[in-house]
Design a protein around this nucleic acid. Structure first.
Lengths: 172, 172
DNA sequence: CCTATTCCCGTTGACGCCCATAGGGCCCCA
DNA sequence: TGGGGCCCTATGGGCGTCAACGGGAATAGG
């Protein structure tokens, strides 16, 4: 039974490792070369492979100068949102338009690079460098400067949320 | 016999670990070497091992120039918290942006060292030395000077609180 | 025929793996 | 109780591997 317990521990550990590795985390900045190519961070590529994404789908964020990138299950999330809307209203139609029409497929070349098309550049303002931001089940592509600005705003909002807690308290 | 000696050492080490606390306590300052590596204090590594953390999750603190470092459970708690929010509202997005985009994994090398990436240096101001601060279920990474300044502020706040209490009373 | 993409290769720098060494704490024994 | 030896931690550095990146050549497509 010691052996059994050991094996069970092993299985549990493997599951935890899988869970650990299969989400997009952290952020990195990469340079775009003369041909418009940019390396996707190796860690992200590993996650892509682990999740079995054969193709990457990039979607223009509705209210941000960024692209959401992930597998096709990325669409599920947006379609859920559309489903919440009244199908007779304009909103649902607009959402569908953005979701299905404002996306593109990204192809990884042999060296793990993608090409920054004008479609992406126009929406994001990306020119010389690209920031990759992990978001758990997907990741985002930003122009580094805009990312910094938005990140500061997001932090400010979260800090305001915390004002509701007792002063000096640090929720873990 | 070399193997036997090694195993015996291992046994003794494990016994010592049993006596050790299960929490991250006290603080230490370590130097960063030319390659950007820094040794995690041995007693912290012991806690990491005891808790079964296979990899460390590091998060940029919301309002401090420091990193919170802990196991997967740290990230789990954030994600569970996010799950309570309406996924299509700003708050959920901000939270994910924070814990996924501003978080990363740290890998201990074989000698128990981690490398200080720019990701960490930018947020903490760390350059030549690192202060490790135990916080119970996790620990923090600071630039030593900023840690001292923050400690002084915290102490001052506590003093002010105490002056608000009745004279002669000793709040504990 | 020209351009945009894809394939492939070489270079460079970063990182992980390994070993060496010094310094300090602890224990044992004289 | 002081000396000596052992072990462990912190730290430095060599080296091989791999990712990031730049650029030439081949290919497809208009």
């Amino acid at each position: 039974m010691a052996a059994r317990a050991k094996r069970w521990r092993g299985v549990r550990r493997r599951k935890r490792l899988q869970r650990l590795m299969d989400r997009f985390l952290s952020n990195t900045v990469s340079r775009i070369d003369a041909k418009g190519r940019v390396s996707v961070p190796a860690h992200f590529r590993a996650v892509v492979q682990k999740r079995g994404y054969s193709e990457l789908y990039a979607l223009r964020c509705l209210d941000l100068p960024a692209m959401d990138v992930g597998g096709l299950d990325l669409l599920d999330r947006y379609e859920q949102r559309i489903a919440l809307e009244d199908p007779f209203l304009q909103t649902a139609d607009d959402m569908s338009f953005f979701c299905h029409g404002d996306g593109t497929f990204l192809k990884l070349d042999q060296d793990g690079r993608i090409t920054m098309s004008d479609f992406i550049r126009e929406h994001t303002g990306i020119s010389a460098e690209v920031a990759f931001v992990g978001r758990g089940n997907f990741f985002q592509i930003w122009e580094p400067g805009r990312l910094a600005a938005y990140g500061a705003q997001a932090r400010a909002r979260l800090l305001q949320l915390r004002q509701g807690t007792k002063p000096g308290e640090r929720p873990e």
